[in-house]
Simulated scan of single mutants.
Amino acid sequence: MTAEAAALRRALAERIAEKVSLADPAWRVAVEAIPRECFLGAAVFRPNGSSWEPVRRVESGEEAWMRLAYSDETWVTQVEGIRAADAAVSLVGNPTSSSTLPSLVVRMLEVAGIRDGDKVLEIGTGTGYSTAILCHRLGEENVTSIEYDAGIARQAAENLGAAGYAPNLVVGDGLLGHKEGAEYDAVIATCAVRHIPVPWLWQVRDGGSITTAVGGWLPASGLVRLALADDDIASGRFTGDRISYMLARPHERPPHPVFHRYEGETRRSRLDPHLTDDWTGGFVAQLAAPSAELMTAGDNVILRDIATGSQAWTEATKDGWIVHQHGPLRLWDQVEGALMAWREAGSPDQSAFGITVAADLTQTVWAENPEGPSWRLPA
């Protein structure tokens, strides 16, 4: 399959170049060189209704498996801590590790502005595919990658070895970074975070960068590149890319009891709650209620605050919407006010937003410019 695999890699690189509009041809060269099949193991999960069905290489046949490997798709490799290779039947639950679609891997590296000779810390080794892309471009001696899950880290090391790479691999909490290897020119996270971890800021050189997805429990997320200035202030704008990464495990929503709706105080909503369905609208709502999760029941929208137990739920009427709010926070008041301000500003897309991390480490997301409407990220 060597010639066929090489052709599939070239075809994948061509699709990515068309999709991402590559400014740096080195990433295309890396995609053409890295055997992605080495990073998928013996099986992956594919969605099947509300469950995850294992797809095994030995059962699929080599030709079908290679086409799967070189599709520009995210392949889930672990669900609720169970590897696809170890799953005898379909599973219900949340993915806990995956091989991210290659075009997103390349897009993040482009956004990060990686240059030859840069020293990079990757947060989230996963299968090791993105690590291999970095190694091909920068040399394995310039790449450190940290993985939270020890089992995933062992498999990634095997995958990278099979592909011919031996970067510095670390098992640990990526939110703490890896100070032994600092200072880095760039930190790149392949998971989302609710706020920028302070150790990343300490471990990046002045003028260096942090590229990550900022997400939450609503869930909504945005890709951002922060540059660290010599005055210890980091700032940058969101790219506007519609991406979705798993939250870093320490930032995941904690377990909670079964939801029960309370009548609470009732009033008429001043806007359609389905503005939260909009990519940027959902992001704005999350900024306004950073510890809330979003649920739906039919056409109704439900918000529940994890920290306080406060809740808000909407109900359609013949001429609009009413909202019920219960608990110490008026969640819908917060979300509604932010969404109305966003709409009055012309509903700008996510690329109009940015983040500033001040010298005192407060983290603020702002709209249009740092003096515009702003929201603090949760600590």
Rank of each mutant, 00 (worst) to 15 (best):
L8S: 04
R9K: 13
R15H: 10
A17P: 07
E18K: 14
K19S: 15
S21F: 06
P25I: 09
W27N: 02
P35A: 12
E37T: 09
C38S: 12
L40F: 11
V55T: 08
R57P: 02
W65Q: 02
A85H: 09
S90W: 04
S103W: 08
V106G: 02
G113S: 05
E122H: 02
C135P: 06
V143S: 00
D149R: 03
A166G: 14
A166N: 12
H178A: 01
H178Q: 11
G181E: 02
Y184R: 00
A186G: 06
I188M: 06
R194M: 09
L201V: 03
R205G: 00
G207Y: 01
S209R: 04
W217D: 04
A220G: 14
L226Q: 00
A227T: 15
T239C: 08
M246G: 07
L247C: 10
P257T: 07
L275V: 11
D277R: 15
T280S: 07
G281Y: 03
G282N: 04
L287K: 04
N300Q: 14
S310F: 05
W313C: 06
W313A: 03
E315Q: 15
T317S: 14
D319E: 12
D319S: 13
D319T: 12
G320F: 05
L339M: 10
G346T: 03
P348E: 08
I355F: 04
D360H: 08
V365F: 08
W366T: 10
E371Y: 07
